[in-house]
């Protein structure tokens, strides 16, 4: 087929354009949020003392951390879906880890050394490693589907960032359940759980986000 023939076919198809990416992301985020929330309430749900816990700084800080992770990874993901787009500097992804490490240092300072071990191990390590990936599963799927509407020139990388965002969403919900509020626990187990979603996202992106 000559290029001129192809152009004739493309020109005949000109009236059909895809949905704007802003719309695609809005729908994907809504789906991811609703599905993750449904899985969360259908399985573990929030902790019994949620409202009194909300008065404590360690509990609230978990949401700052997961919230920053979700927002920064979304900004990166949105840029990675467009060829040649100006993307935020990679260092924005270090914002959440930097906050977490700062909190860890503070915790080491205020907590007696004898209590470090227990604060880190906690009681919920296995629950954390199970439910963050589980809650994040549907968001990963929704975000990869959205990525297919975009045009990521690095599909595996974009998929991995989609997994990071799914991890941020899942960790936000999971944080409302978990009674281990010490940054020592959060910065040990949450990253491992989220890394599983990043790996899954990268694999799915590699397979399904090509175009």
């Amino acid at each position: 087929m000559k290029t001129e023939d192809l152009i004739a076919a493309l020109a005949a198809d000109a009236p059909r354009t895809g949905p704007r990416l802003d719309t695609v992301w809005a729908v994907a985020l809504a789906c991811a949020g609703v599905l993750a929330t449904a899985v969360f309430f259908g399985t573990i749900g929030p902790r019994a003392d949620f409202w009194s816990a909300a008065q404590t700084v360690r509990f609230d800080f978990k949401f700052v951390l997961t919230g920053v992770l979700a927002v920064t990874s979304f900004l990166m993901l949105r840029a990675l879906a467009v060829p040649g787009a100006n993307r935020p500097h990679w260092s924005v992804l270090a914002l959440a880890p930097a906050l977490g490490i700062g909190a860890v240092l503070l915790e080491l300072f205020v907590l007696p050394a004898g209590a470090w071990q227990m604060a880190q191990t906690g009681k919920n390590a296995l629950v954390c490693l199970t439910y963050i990936p589980l809650i994040g599963l549907a968001p990963v799927g929704a975000l990869i589907l959205a990525l297919r509407r975009g045009a990521p020139t690095r599909p595996a990388l974009a998929g991995g960032i989609a997994g990071l965002l799914a991890g941020g969403i899942a960790a936000t919900l999971y944080a409302a359940h978990c009674t281990d509020d010490s940054p020592l626990f959060v910065m040990t187990w949450y990253p491992i759980a989220i890394a599983m979603l990043v790996a899954l996202g990268a694999i799915l992106g590699r397979i399904f986000a090509r175009w």
């Binding site: 895809g18 060829p83 040649g84 975009g150 045009a151 020139t153 175009w211």
Partner: peptide
Amino acid sequence: LLAVHLKRHTWRPEAPILPWIYAI
């Protein structure tokens, strides 16, 4: 060309277009 056509909704109308085409 096929990708430019099928993915043209990913280009932001206020952004320059050549970097987008070249990246594709």
